[in-house]
Computed example of a mutant assay.
Amino acid sequence: MGKRYSELQPDQIGFIAEQHLFFVATAAPGGRVNLSPKGMDSLRVLSPRRILWLNLTGSGNETAAHLALEPRITLMWCSFTVRPLILRAYGMGRAVHHGDSDWAGLAAELPDQPGARQIVDVAVDLVQSSCGFAVPFMDFRADRPVLRDWATAKGAEGLRSYWDERNRQTIDGLPTGIEANL
């Protein structure tokens, strides 16, 4: 049976730190729901009610656009190892761009990853845990180096060009705010 909490509990924060994968869900009013898997070393729990994650460059940029219009966000982790658990953090998020005044302070809380596009700052207002009994066992081998290698090879100018060409609009045609990084 699921349990609800007003904030992350210490054991839940520990569980999050152990995970190699998490999922992010957002939706703009009237638009498609976006659900994305995230990995690499890109997330930090700053407090029981605050989470930061580094939004790395990818083919889409749905989250930033959705949060600009509707700040609701859900983060989810699930255990693929011994302890069966699904954990969701619900809250309000905002995308912080390179040119924003609080970028440097927030970036200092996160690992330096090539291709960092935005930082998503989440204010958690509800946490829910559930059993995860149907989640299969899976073993972690390693992070894929492809995104890191690709972003490093692109360099800063190449990434800005990619953002300009591929990350300005969502699949629903909504502006992502990426021009703040150009």
Rank of each mutant, 00 (worst) to 15 (best):
K3S: 06
R4D: 04
R4W: 02
S6W: 11
E7D: 01
L8N: 03
Q9D: 03
Q9V: 14
Q9K: 10
D11T: 09
I16M: 04
H20T: 13
H20C: 10
L21H: 00
F22D: 00
F22C: 11
V24L: 14
T26S: 04
A27C: 14
A27N: 01
A28L: 08
G30M: 12
S36Q: 07
P37M: 15
P37H: 15
K38H: 05
G39F: 09
M40P: 00
D41E: 08
R44T: 11
P48Y: 11
L52E: 02
L52Q: 02
L52H: 01
W53Y: 15
W53D: 03
W53H: 09
N55D: 15
G58C: 13
G58K: 11
S59Y: 14
N61L: 12
N61I: 12
T63W: 02
A65C: 06
H66S: 08
H66K: 06
H66I: 11
A68W: 04
P71E: 07
P71D: 08
T74N: 09
L75A: 12
M76S: 10
M76T: 11
C78M: 14
S79K: 13
S79T: 12
S79I: 12
S79A: 10
T81P: 00
V82D: 03
R83M: 13
R83H: 09
P84G: 07
I86H: 05
I86W: 04
R88E: 00
R88G: 04
Y90L: 15
Y90G: 00
G91N: 03
M92Y: 09
G93M: 12
R94G: 00
V96R: 12
V96Y: 07
V96N: 08
H97C: 04
G99M: 08
D100T: 02
S101M: 10
W103Y: 04
A104E: 07
A104P: 00
A104G: 04
A104C: 09
G105W: 04
A108N: 01
D112N: 06
Q113R: 04
A116E: 02
D121Y: 04
V124L: 08
V124Q: 02
D125G: 03
D125A: 09
Q128W: 10
S129N: 01
S130Q: 10
S130N: 08
S130D: 07
S130V: 13
G132T: 08
G132P: 03
A134W: 03
V135K: 07
V135Q: 15
P136Q: 15
P136N: 14
M138K: 12
R141D: 08
A142Q: 14
D143Q: 10
D143K: 07
R144A: 13
R144K: 04
R144F: 08
P145E: 14
P145L: 14
V146K: 03
L147D: 00
R148H: 10
R148Q: 15
D149G: 07
W150R: 13
A151S: 14
T152E: 14
T152I: 11
A153W: 06
K154I: 13
G155N: 05
G155V: 14
E157L: 08
G158S: 07
S161Q: 13
Y162I: 09
W163V: 11
W163G: 01
W163R: 00
E165W: 04
N167P: 00
R168G: 01
L174E: 01
T176W: 05
T176L: 14
G177E: 10
E179A: 08
A180F: 02
